[in-house]
Amino acid sequence: MPARTVGSLVLLDLTVPARDLARATGAPFEPAPAVVAELAKVCEEMAPMGRRMNVFGEAVVPPTDASAFEHLLAATGRDLRI
């Protein structure tokens, strides 16, 4: 894999679980829009492989008023209600 892809996957692996930790502790967490936009591209490209490797769950449908970050989370299989 190209180094940029590997770096983006590492950033994705830090960003998505950070939301889970923030949610569990009641802390706010909203990554920079530029980061979310870049990760959304990587996620779209890598999601099928991520699902085969059980890294991502099946995509969920985000609410109609979901933010770009919530769309990214839904693409990784995160249930936004929890």
Rank of each mutant, 00 (worst) to 15 (best):
S8F: 03
V42H: 01
P28S: 14
T64H: 09
D65W: 12
R23A: 14
A24E: 08
S8W: 01
V36Q: 06
P2H: 11
A32V: 10
P33M: 05
A47N: 08
H71V: 02
A75P: 06
D65M: 09
A37K: 00
G57M: 00
R4V: 13
E30C: 08
R52A: 15
E45M: 08
T5Y: 03
T76L: 04
T25P: 05
D79Q: 10
P33S: 10
P31I: 00
A18E: 14
V55K: 06
F29I: 00
P48Y: 12
F69S: 04
A47G: 08
L21S: 09
I82W: 05
L73N: 03
V10L: 14
P63W: 09
G77H: 02
N54V: 03
A75Q: 14
A24Y: 00
F29E: 00
L73W: 00
P17Q: 07
E58D: 15
E30I: 02
L72P: 09
P17T: 08
S8Y: 01
L72G: 09
E45D: 10
G77Q: 01
G7S: 13
F29R: 01
N54C: 06
L39C: 12
P28Y: 01
P28F: 04
V6K: 09
G50R: 06
R78H: 06
A59N: 01
A27N: 10
A3I: 15
G57I: 02
A68P: 05
